[in-house]
């Protein structure tokens, strides 16, 4: 069996702007945990929008289980991958439960009502993310961390093989950052889902990810993908982020500590 994701010479440029993603090729196996890292403006969010079919590539192909993502209908894509964005604005006061139930839209029959299976999935997702006690609260009344967990619950309730997240730990305190990564790891291990997440925290990436895709802005420095130990070397972090770092090892865990900016 081939890899689940096969990205071939992917290039992308926004209209009227220079090339943002240039000839990127990589593949991801099913059931792996991948972190996407890189400096601001390098195209991380653009990349996951390409993967989720929201944007169309200028060149190259994105194959999910051998099928081009851009040939799929929104409904069939929504049964294969779920996306958690950084923010979703809520104009109307849907409750947490109603919001998570929307994940089942692609599974509804012609009458447009959820079956008991749909409700059970939603309940499971709420329990897994420990948001079941919030079920009847208005989504607008939640804190940032609670909101983030609710949208992860919605992605879980979508019941897909792939989960893509855009900086899920943004705005979260340390405890909730760890909680989100623990949750993602357990989803990967227990349910065998493929997880692709953007992260700014290279230490989190080091601890949780099976592989890291380090996107690089320059032409001299190619984007690389591999196990975090191999990808996140001091030299490479210096070249990509412009920051000098130290790698420390403690109990077989590697940590990266910034020292200062490069001159």
């Amino acid at each position: 069996m081939g890899p689940q994701w096969d990205i071939q010479t992917l290039s992308f440029a926004y209209k009227g702007q220079g090339v943002l993603i240039d000839q990127l090729s990589f593949s991801l196996a099913a059931g792996t945990f991948t972190g996407v890292a890189g400096p601001n403006g390098v195209g991380k969010t653009t990349l996951i929008h390409l993967l989720s079919g929201t944007l169309n590539p200028s060149e190259g192909k994105i194959l999910l289980e051998g099928q081009s993502v851009h040939g799929m209908s929104p409904a069939s894509l929504a049964r294969r991958l779920a996306l958690v964005r950084q923010h979703t604005d809520m104009s109307f006061g849907f409750t947490v439960e109603e919001t998570v139930l929307m994940a089942r839209t692609a599974h509804l029959d012609w009458r447009g009502f959820e079956s008991t299976v749909d409700r059970d999935r939603v309940h499971e997702a709420l329990c897994l993310t420990e948001t079941d006690h919030l079920a009847h609260r208005s989504i607008n009344s939640l804190s940032g961390g609670e909101c983030q967990r609710v949208f992860i619950a919605r992605a879980l309730a979508q019941d897909t093989d792939v989960l893509i997240l855009d900086e899920p730990t943004n705005h979260l305190d340390l405890k909730h950052q760890i909680a989100v990564y623990d949750l993602l790891k357990s989803i990967q291990v227990d349910q065998g889902k493929t997880i692709i997440t953007i992260t700014h925290d290279i230490n989190m990436a080091m601890q949780y990810c099976d592989q890291v895709l380090l996107l690089s802005p320059g032409y001299d420095q190619k984007s690389v993908i591999g196990p975090p130990q191999d990808v996140l070397t001091c030299d490479r972090i210096e070249a990509v982020f412009g920051v000098r770092v130290m790698r420390l090892t403690h109990n077989e865990h590697t940590f990266i500590a910034p020292i200062g900016q490069c001159r």
Partner: peptide
């Protein structure tokens, strides 16, 4: 968001 939930 609606598109990611499978809506045309």
């Amino acid at each position: 968001d609606a598109r990611n939930l499978g809506i045309h």
